[in-house]
Design a binder for these strands. Structure first.
Lengths: 287, 287
DNA sequence: GTTCCGCATGAATCGATAG
DNA sequence: ACTATCGATTCATGCGGAA
């Protein structure tokens, strides 16, 4: 049995990151507080100060990441007074100056985006997933995230349940997000850099800002079992919870005690079930 | 019968734009050279020089656009040597300094994107559609591009409960309550800022960089019949061809004689059919 | 066991009003 | 004038209880 560690720490990541060993992390997957968003929990960083606030963190992340590791940053600029802010663009430029390579920008298409109507814009249905690396030779396990190929209209799919047909056939036709591939013998194709995922907005008392499928996808892509995953803005703990399920070691840092405690309760009680979870997980994996 | 003009000009848009009247254009929709890799035209702009090359054009576009008009820029930075270039980000910042408002960034999700496989990235399935405006009060005809409401509504709106009829403010700070009765008999919803369009791969002798549905969507959204549409990098003429079909006046500028001549052949012969085309188009419009 | 249906919820944004 | 707060608007999802 592989021994998996899940360390979560209460504190400001600007301090805690300094205690981590350099070149020790395989994947950083995080969603920092957006500017002027979540002001009641994180204090609300002003857009004009955002880059200056983030850069010291970026420097530490650069230090702790392995040379062949990857840093995925989930972020979206807000619209205000009729314009999009530019702080995310400026952050990308600043991180490059800091030494990061801006390798790729994935798009997370949020199928269930926030409602609303305004005279000058439509609903915002996408977020950036910025990929940064330390070197051009990074680990990437493309075959782990392959998706079923082809259209649903292959004739032999008539027996699928109606909701599966409707939901997966609607609008995007990406085929991403559901694991219906097990039912059918179809060939697999490599995915694209556009991900179609609904946010989880259910009635449970924990509300994550991104669905588990999001970190799962990148953990599959950029790490293997036993690797180390870091989330310096742990929040509701989605990243570390998924990492644990997938038998990756993880480190989560959270500044808000309430969030920290809630994740702590979830992570610890199931420590003994790892072997079993491994089995469960692997049967669900796309082969 | 409305008289529609479609003027196409052979020449460098840096010169031709200067001959256009100021405040005369309702919509600029264009895909400049680097986005489609026609680097042999316009002398092959280098990424490092891209912003400096574009800014004089941006200045003229700012001059010719009406105050309530919109400038849509379809562009995507290329990946080179393992990194995404940053010239598009820098261009956004530079255009803002020039006086443009960066109003929105739409995503064009290309459902059937170019095939290929690389060790360090997936297929690129999206492009930016950057919206710029001169003022905060621009024309936007949102109802023209509404889409069928999601499948969830089929069962949802059959019977409304008592609580559905009253407004019910949620306890969170979202300010989002519900009044489902507003949605009775509603079959259309406003779209989001993510567009799902296949690239056109028909066997016509012209190779368009974007499908007709793309300019059509923005022409519907930002202009009405008789308005003026401009494409300073006409290419295969998709924008002006669609504008003509939709009974908008248009101006196309193209520097490559071969492209120019091909569009000229397509545009001119059908001048007398405008009335008929109008009827055809209107039956296709979403009401 | 299925399927159906009620319902809470979500990194939103604008304009008006208040201090 | 400039900032802070508040009300209005709106759509897709998944859970859980009912049929």
């Amino acid at each position: 049995m592989m021994q998996i560690q899940n360390e979560i720490t209460l504190g400001d990541c600007r301090d805690v990151l300094k205690t981590l060993e350099e070149n020790s992390i395989d994947l950083i997957f995080t969603s920092p507080p957006y500017a002027d968003r979540r002001t009641h929990t994180y204090g609300g960083i002003k857009p004009e100060e955002y880059v200056d606030w983030f850069l010291p963190i970026g420097k530490e992340l650069l230090r702790v990441l392995k040379p062949d590791g990857t840093f995925m940053l989930n972020i979206k600029e807000k619209a205000e007074n009729g314009e999009r802010h530019t702080y995310v663009l400026e952050l990308i430029l600043a991180l490059r100056k800091q030494g990061w390579l801006w390798t790729e920008e994935f798009i997370w298409h949020k199928r269930n985006c926030y409602p609303g109507k305004w005279p000058n814009r439509f609903r915002d249905a996408w977020e950036r997933l910025l990929q940064f690396n330390k070197t051009r030779r990074f680990n990437m396990h493309q075959e782990e995230v392959m998706v079923p190929v082809g259209e649903w209209a292959n004739g032999r799919l008539k027996r699928l349940s109606e909701t599966d047909m409707i939901r997966d056939n609607s609008k995007t036709r990406s085929g991403f997000g559901k694991n219906i591939s097990n039912w059918l013998q179809r060939s697999l194709a490599y995915p694209t850099n556009v991900l179609h995922l609904a946010t989880e907005c259910n009635n449970k008392n924990h509300s994550a800002v991104f669905p588990e499928a999001l970190p799962e996808w990148f953990i599959k892509l950029f790490t293997k079992e036993g690797d180390w995953v870091l989330d310096p803005f742990m929040g509701s703990g989605t990243t570390v919870r998924v990492a644990k399920k997938m038998l990756r070691n993880s480190i989560g840092i959270e500044i808000v005690p309430e969030y920290y405690n809630r994740v702590k309760e979830q992570i610890e009680p199931v420590e003994c079930l790892l072997c079993e979870e491994k089995g469960v997980y692997e049967t669900n994996r796309v082969k």
